[in-house]
């Protein structure tokens, strides 16, 4: 006879085997879908720019069609004061922040995780040193630090992004540390040691991969938004990407001179692009945070 075990008193969460997107709220889903669309657009545009498949050459000046309005003379978004195609320049502008942004994300995530693990897992003296280092970075205004670096070296976007990465590392470190302390208090780490798992496996697989991957993913999306904002604001001020290389920041800046004459599009188009993209990355991070971090409860 086949034995069956029926346990009437023990309940099972009926929803835990459903896929994630079925259990999360609709608004989060909208956030994530919008964020993913923005991400996809950025990726595709970056690819187009890298392959040089553009509507027209972003650097060639069409002197007969300077400052033409959008959707006229064959220019979808119009042209700027030198007769360069705005759409092409917008697409190429992504290159100003995309790879540097990835660099800053990489630096902040890896450095932050290392710092977080050292302070959370090790504790003791290491923790105070990491804490001190984090406070030191946190207490220094970031923009001033970046301007200092620009003054000391050349205005190179990669150097700027390294500084951005370094200065966001304490945020990641704090989150990772909090997660580890939470796990330690739940005696999960202790039981993992008792089960005979090697230390590197506990740290890398169980803590960092299983428990911190959602935090790191969210921080990565927010890091991209941060990178865009820093790059565009510095380029707007003239410290970042220099003309004639297009960047959304210096496009807003060069277009703003003609705003009062009624030619709003050369600065509005990149400004809206910044708005939509930064919003997209933020909403993606927010939605992921709500969906992934709520999963545990």
């Amino acid at each position: 006879m086949k034995t069956r075990y029926i346990q009437t008193t023990e309940t099972i969460d009926e929803y835990s085997h459903l896929p994630l997107w079925k259990t999360c709220s609709k608004i989060d889903l909208i956030y994530i879908v919008y964020g993913l669309l923005v991400l996809a657009t950025v990726l595709v545009s970056y690819g187009l720019g890298a392959l040089n498949w553009l509507p027209s050459d972003p650097d060639s000046m069409d002197l007969e069609n300077m400052m033409v309005a959008p959707l006229t003379s064959g220019y979808f978004l119009g042209t700027d004061y030198m007769g360069r195609d705005l759409l092409s320049r917008l697409i190429i502008g992504i290159q100003a922040y995309f790879v540097p942004g990835l660099l800053s994300i990489f630096i902040s995530l890896s450095l932050g995780s290392i710092m977080g693990i050292l302070s959370g897992y090790q504790g003791g003296r290491v923790e105070s040193v990491v804490e001190y280092f984090s406070n030191l970075i946190d207490s220094f205004p970031r923009l001033v630090l970046i301007l200092l670096f620009i003054a000391a070296f050349t205005p190179n976007i990669y150097i700027i992004m390294i500084v951005v990465g370094l200065t966001t590392a304490p945020v990641v470190a704090g989150l990772v540390r909090g997660k580890i302390l939470f796990l330690k208090q739940r005696n999960f780490v202790e039981s993992a040691i008792a089960m005979g798992l090697p230390t590197y496996q506990i740290i890398l697989k169980h803590i960092l991969w299983y428990n911190c991957r959602s935090i790191l993913l969210i921080q990565a999306t927010l890091g991209m938004a941060e990178a865009i904002l820093i790059e565009t604001s510095l380029s707007y001020l003239g410290f970042g990407v220099q003309e004639p290389v297009p960047s959304w920041g210096n496009m807003v800046q060069s277009g703003s001179n003609y705003l009062m004459q009624g030619n709003f599009w050369p600065s509005t188009a990149p400004a809206l692009a910044i708005l939509a993209t930064v919003l997209g990355f933020h909403l993606l991070g927010d939605g992921l945070n709500n969906v992934l971090e709520r999963k545990e409860r």
Binding site: R186, S191, G196, L197, E296
Partner: peptide, 21 residues
């Protein structure tokens, strides 16, 4: 020894397991 020869069960099983796996 740990895990191989001596295993341990803890008081609060939910807290002792990895919540994300």
């Amino acid at each position: 020894v740990r895990g191989k020869q001596i295993s341990m069960i803890f008081q609060n099983p939910k807290a002792a397991m990895n919540p994300y796996e």
